[in-house]
């Protein structure tokens, strides 16, 4: 029966609590739905946990849409401030990362449009978003054609459409499932997520099946 430590959760202590691991210990084995529901009920450790786990990937995700880091930071903050204000009446969320990505993308696009840095049609018009690459770190199997092959795949990937690149990055880099990708990219059907990735990968077929 060890005594439980409890924080006095004033703003200062909340900030200090970023350096402690209480939230990780309490929530790392919980499902996203449980974490989200705790957050909705006002649990500050749950918020702390969500922030820790997701804010870095949110920032990185935002960087795929704009290189204005100040704007990304603003948007990330706005999202969390709004969510905290709505605690007590938040809807359930099964995949927190996907949900935050979707919110962030909407927020960034809204802001860019407001500042007239983006046309009405949003991202699809422009091809600079979600730049993709193939890293060196893993070695392909057929060593002799390694580098050549890698360059070809990389080129093919960069020639994909923005949405295809985005979906492939969500699948491989972020490790989201098709369902989560569909949620994040606001497809009404899960199979649309699979389809967009299939179309993207099909262009690699010739290179890969040599």
């Amino acid at each position: 029966m060890k005594p439980q430590k409890k924080e006095n959760l004033s703003p200062t202590n909340l900030v200090l609590s970023l350096k402690q691991n209480d939230s990780l210990l309490q929530f790392e084995n919980k499902t996203d739905e449980e974490v989200w529901s705790a957050f909705d009920k006002g649990n500050e450790l749950a918020f702390n946990y969500i922030y820790r786990i997701h804010v870095k990937s949110m920032f990185r995700y935002g960087s795929q849409i704009t290189c204005d880091t100040g704007l990304i930071q603003d948007c990330v903050q706005n999202i969390f401030i709004q969510l905290r204000d709505k605690r007590g009446s938040l809807s359930t969320v099964q995949n927190i990362k996907g949900y935050l990505f979707k919110s962030l993308q909407r927020e960034i696009i809204r802001k860019l449009k407001k500042d007239s840095k983006l046309g009405k049609d949003g991202l699809d018009q422009n091809d600079n978003y979600f730049p993709i690459t193939l890293s060196h770190e893993s070695v392909l199997i057929h060593r002799e054609r390694d580098e050549e092959c890698r360059q070809k795949i990389k080129k093919a990937l960069t020639e994909l459409t923005t949405r295809q690149r985005q979906a492939i990055l969500l699948l491989y880099e972020e490790g989201l499932s098709y369902r989560e990708i569909a949620d994040t990219m606001e497809f009404s059907e899960v199979k649309s997520a699979r389809k967009i990735i299939y179309r993207g990968l099909a262009t690699l077929k010739d290179i890969l099946q040599k």
Partner: peptide
Amino acid sequence: VLEAASIIRSVKYANSPEL
């Protein structure tokens, strides 16, 4: 299988700034 795994692991954001 290993080639597929290698591709999956190699796909990265070209631009990945750290917060």
